[in-house]
């Protein structure tokens, strides 16, 4: 056997050990999914955090009952301005309170309906953003699952080529395929790992929005008198 070919086999062996470890890891990938759909019934939901698709007024609002179907706020320019100022996550909660206070001062005579409309607008906009994120997480999970499948399948094919290589029955064509598969496997594993690292952050996003809406609702309530 040629030196180069020996080197290749050695590399292939270490790669196969590596990919075996990753394949075992991929099986573990099922663990958070199992945990996750214990909270929700969506088997495709990859997050440990429970899947709460839509936030409702009753979860957040401490004032008089409000109707989520009431879209009067869409005609209220002051409310829309306030919501545009306080909804972005980059605006710290200390600042949002100042904006709400200013708004409350401007609408002292008719404060309750104004704050109710502000809450409904916040709820609507937050749900819109969360819906997009939750949809994205679903697609993310589907892509990650199909990538996991491909890694496991390619690992199986590589193992077959390794056997043939050791037995000396590997054809030239198969040898070329072998090399391509190894490269593909390496890339797939890298992408899979990168995505896995971002999963925790991705899954936190809907929760962070839920936390923010709750905090903003409490700030509105302070001036609801």
């Amino acid at each position: 056997m040629k030196k180069n070919s020996q080197f290749l086999i050695k590399n292939r062996f270490s790669l196969s050990l590596f990919s075996l470890t990753i394949a075992a890891g991929l099986l573990n990938f099922a663990a958070p999914i199992k945990e996750a759909h214990a909270y929700s019934e969506d088997k495709n939901w990859p997050c440990i955090q429970g899947k709460v698709i839509k936030l409702s007024a009753g979860q957040m609002w401490r004032g008089n009952p409000v109707k989520e179907t009431d879209f009067t706020w869409q005609q209220n320019e002051d409310v829309k301005k306030l919501v545009n100022k306080i909804i972005p996550r980059r605006v710290p909660l200390k600042e949002t309170e100042k904006f709400i206070e200013e708004f409350a001062k401007q609408h002292q005579t008719n404060i309750k309906p104004q704050l109710e409309q502000s809450f409904l607008a916040l709820l609507f906009e937050t749900n819109k953003i969360r819906k997009e994120i939750i949809g994205g997480i679903g697609k993310f999970s589907t892509r990650q699952k199909s990538l996991s499948k491909r890694i496991v399948e390619n690992r199986r094919k590589i193992a077959e080529f390794e056997k043939k290589d050791e037995a000396g029955t590997l054809t030239k064509e198969e040898d070329q395929q072998f090399g391509k598969l190894e490269q593909q496997l390496e890339w797939d594993i890298r992408i899979h790992e990168e995505r896995e690292k971002s999963l925790e952050y991705v899954c936190e996003s809907p929760v962070i929005l839920e936390q923010r809406l709750f905090a903003l609702s409490q700030q509105l309530k302070k001036f609801y008198k």
């Binding site: 909270y39 929700s40 429970g50 698709i53 409702s56 009753g58 979860q59 609002w61 009952p65 409000v66």
Partner: peptide, 11 residues
Amino acid sequence: EIPGVTQDTVQ
């Protein structure tokens, strides 16, 4: 049954 709250959040 909580008024104003969707049923799936009652856990």
